[in-house]
Write a protein that binds this DNA or RNA. Structure first.
Length: 419
RNA sequence: GGGUGAAUGCCGGAGCGGCCAAACGGGGCGGACUGUAAAUCCGCUGGCUUACGCCUACGGUGGUUCGAAUCCACCUUCGCCCA
């Protein structure tokens, strides 16, 4: 074993624990294990060409690991993405083709690269794709080397499988059933090739992680461990990570930075402290101070939360932009909302354009009827002026500081830039 | 393979052959109140239309009827029971 690093780094488990990021771990003595630098991994599904905020917890987990001197492996599930994880899903997942999976994997790795450092150093992260080792496997090899060491009795006893086999679920196909074997095999492979001994994952991955550990013991007498992160919940009980417009993505093309910022700015009071711990690197002491705030002062903490996360994901400049735009739009009542982060589109104002048309172009209304209802409900403003006529139009004269700002409700903004 | 039940709008879930764009609940959106919070209250919630109205919609295809989400036949899918 290598000598301890000269500057003792904080213990990963202690760090994660202090931030409420530990749901379960397999090893009572995980702290001892993590006293030495280890190689750990966490998997991400390449189901889209961007991650969304739901993946931030595992990303932060890997980032903390790296900061504690460990070597993170980012596994993109190229192979498992071709199958679909059945864990706690009610339906079979859509399968993707290999080209898509490869493209998505690259995009995802790029996003994760903002949180952790890739390279060749001892604690530098590496990107691995399980398609590279699972792809070449033959059916016979798998059955003989892996299948002989896996108990179906155990598998059907797992909660994630049970749910699909009983009740009113959609049933489970053999394909999906095999998913967990692939994931277990990943762990064993990474142990063999990279000396990886710890797997991190969401709480829903517990069963899969445990399977990998058992398989490692049976195949190589390996001593593996796992740690899961808690499920991110919301005070109102709804699913975390969704906004009116669906998933909140890390890709600014899917979720404009302004909307991203606002997503965090608008979290429930009671969630702020937890989210600060989960999603920022701010010292716990500072977070404790922030969450002391009572009443309206808690908004301070929300701004910090939104700013810090936006900075991590989109960079300082974008974060400044979003924060300033938001504060102008909501606090000072000004209309100087020119920040680049606000969703916007060009417009031709040589002829007056109906407000209904603008509502449709901004995506706030999907039909004339919906746009009309919004106006009739009193929810539409152009700049600071409330629109109360469904036939209202906007012309070049209505542009303020060269822009037309369309507002729906209290929080939704869209900027039109006249050509 | 046999028997049986179901299939409705974003979801759940009602729905005597006409009064059904379809009760009710949830969700979502808008408004009031606030702190860009929560709770509460009010309104809206298929498309086109200023509106009268028209169109599309109750798994699919045909049929009965002046008229069908509601009746019949077949098909598809799912659930349950038996083998």
């Amino acid at each position: 074993m290598a000598a301890a690093p000269p500057d003792p780094l904080p213990n990963l488990h202690a760090v994660l624990h202090s931030r409420g990021l530990v749901a379960q771990c397999t090893d009572e003595r995980i702290e001892d294990r993590l006293a030495q630098p280890v190689t750990c991994y966490c998997g991400f599904d390449p189901t889209a060409d961007s991650l969304h905020v739901g993946s931030l917890v595992p990303i932060m987990g890997l980032a903390h690991a790296q900061r504690c001197g460990h070597r993170p492996l980012v596994l993109v599930g190229g192979a498992t993405g071709l199958i679909g994880d059945p864990s706690f899903k009610t339906d079979a997942r859509q399968m993707l083709d290999e080209t898509t999976v490869r493209t998505n994997a690259a995009a995802i790795a790029d996003q994760i690269g903002r949180f952790i450092t890739f390279g060749d150093g001892p604690a530098d992260a590496a990107l691995v794709n399980n398609l590279d080792w699972i792809g070449p496997l033959t059916w016979i090899e798998v059955l003989r080397d892996v299948g002989s060491r896996v108990s179906v009795n155990r598998m059907i006893g797992m909660e994630s499988v049970k749910q699909r086999m009983t009740g009113d679920g959609a049933g489970i196909s053999y394909l999906e059933f095999s998913y967990m074997i692939l994931q277990a095999y990943d762990f064993v492979h990474l142990f063999r090739v990279h000396g990886c001994t710890v797997q991190l994952g969401g709480q829903d991955q517990w069963g899969n992680i445990v399977m990998g550990i058992e398989l490692g013991r049976k195949m190589h007498d390996a001593d593996l461990a796992g740690l899961t992160f808690p499920l991110v919940t919301k005070a109102d009980g709804t699913k975390f990570g969704k906004s009116e417009s669906g998933n909140v993505w890390l890709d600014p093309k899917r979720t404009p930075v302004f909307d991203f910022f606002q997503f965090w700015r608008n979290v429930d009071d009671t969630d702020v402290g937890r989210y600060l711990r989960f999603f920022t690197f701010l010292p716990v002491e500072q977070i404790e101070q922030l969450e002391q705030a009572e009443g309206a002062a808690i908004n301070e903490a929300k701004v910090t939360l939104a700013y810090e996360i936006t900075k991590l994901v989109h960079g300082t400049e974008e974060a400044d932009n979003a924060r300033d735009s938001a504060s102008r739009a909501f606090s000072t009542g000004g209309v100087d909302v020119t920040g680049e982060s606000i969703p916007s589109a060009p417009i031709d104002l040589t002829e007056p354009v109906g407000v209904i048309e603008l509502l449709k172009q901004s995506g706030f209304a999907s039909s004339n009827g919906e746009a009309r209802r919004l106006i009739q409900g009193g929810g539409v403003r152009v700049g600071e002026t409330k629109v109360d006529d469904i036939a209202a139009t906007v012309s070049a004269d209505d542009a303020e500081q060269g822009h037309v700002l369309l507002r729906v409700g209290k929080k939704k903004l869209f900027r039109f830039d006249p050509a």
